[in-house]
Amino acid sequence: MAFHEVRFPANLSFGSVGGPKRRTEIVALANGFEERNTPWAHARRRYDAGMGLRSLDDLSALVAFFEARAGQLHGFRWKDWTDYKSCLPSRAPAFDDQVIAQGDGVTGVFQLAKTYISGPGRYTRPIGKPVKDTVRAGVGGNEVFPDTHYQVDHAAGLITFTDAPEPGAPVTAGFEFDVPVRFDTDRIAVSVASFQAGEMPSIPVIEVRV
């Protein structure tokens, strides 16, 4: 098994159905109250790649991509059109979109991350597959620049600074990112007649940990 650093055609993922899935274990107590817990620290995303197909050419491109990944064997990148930026969908990523760490004067390598906040809830999602040439970074409120001040590992989502940020200095970043996934089936079943009649094949895709 390997992970291929190639993105599923973005024009085919546009229009697909999917999103995050959580696992919550609920125990009903005798007094009517509940105890709720989750074994997952992070959500796992699922999508249906078949919903984005619009023509026989699209279907041909999908089959070629599926065969090149050997079905479920190899992972790949997926653009989730509902959540692929460090900022709002209508904005361009900026160097101060996300606070990913606080400098300590020693650490120079940081994981990119995106934080989701709503009311008292707060969730920080590690970002492991940033899109090349979209990462911007800042230290202490000032933008710094690639090659001169830092390098990005686009396969792991790590940003390495030439000089460790000073103690207390906020380390920030903005970026676009993909979701690491694999096909969740080893079979594509579709007929040309049903496809032309508007019946879309179901081709499940599931997030993987890398």
Rank of each mutant, 00 (worst) to 15 (best):
K129D: 06
V181R: 10
V190I: 10
E207Q: 15
Y123M: 07
E166L: 06
T38P: 04
A94T: 06
A28R: 10
F161E: 09
K132P: 07
M51R: 13
H154I: 02
L88E: 02
E176D: 08
T162F: 15
H149E: 08
K79R: 12
H74M: 06
G108E: 11
G174T: 03
G50Q: 15
H149N: 12
D163H: 05
P165Y: 07
A10R: 06
E25M: 12
A94N: 03
A197F: 10
L112P: 07
L59Q: 02
V210T: 04
I203N: 00
G157E: 10
M200D: 10
G138I: 13
P130G: 05
G157I: 13
L59R: 06
V205D: 13
A30S: 13
P165C: 02
E35Q: 10
G32F: 04
K129S: 08
A2P: 05
A10T: 07
K79I: 04
L53D: 00
H149C: 06
E25N: 11
D57Y: 08
E143P: 03
L56D: 12
N142P: 00
G71N: 12
F3Q: 03
V109T: 14
D57W: 09
W81Y: 14
V192Q: 01
L29W: 04
R46P: 00
V171W: 11
V208A: 00
T82F: 09
V27E: 09
E34P: 12
G121F: 13
A156W: 07
C87T: 07
H42G: 02
A173I: 07
Q111K: 14
V179L: 04
T160I: 11
G121R: 06
P89C: 08
R46V: 15
G141C: 03
I117R: 15
E5V: 01
R125S: 03
A61F: 10
Y116R: 13
R182N: 02
F175D: 11
P126N: 06
V131L: 08
N31T: 04
H154A: 12
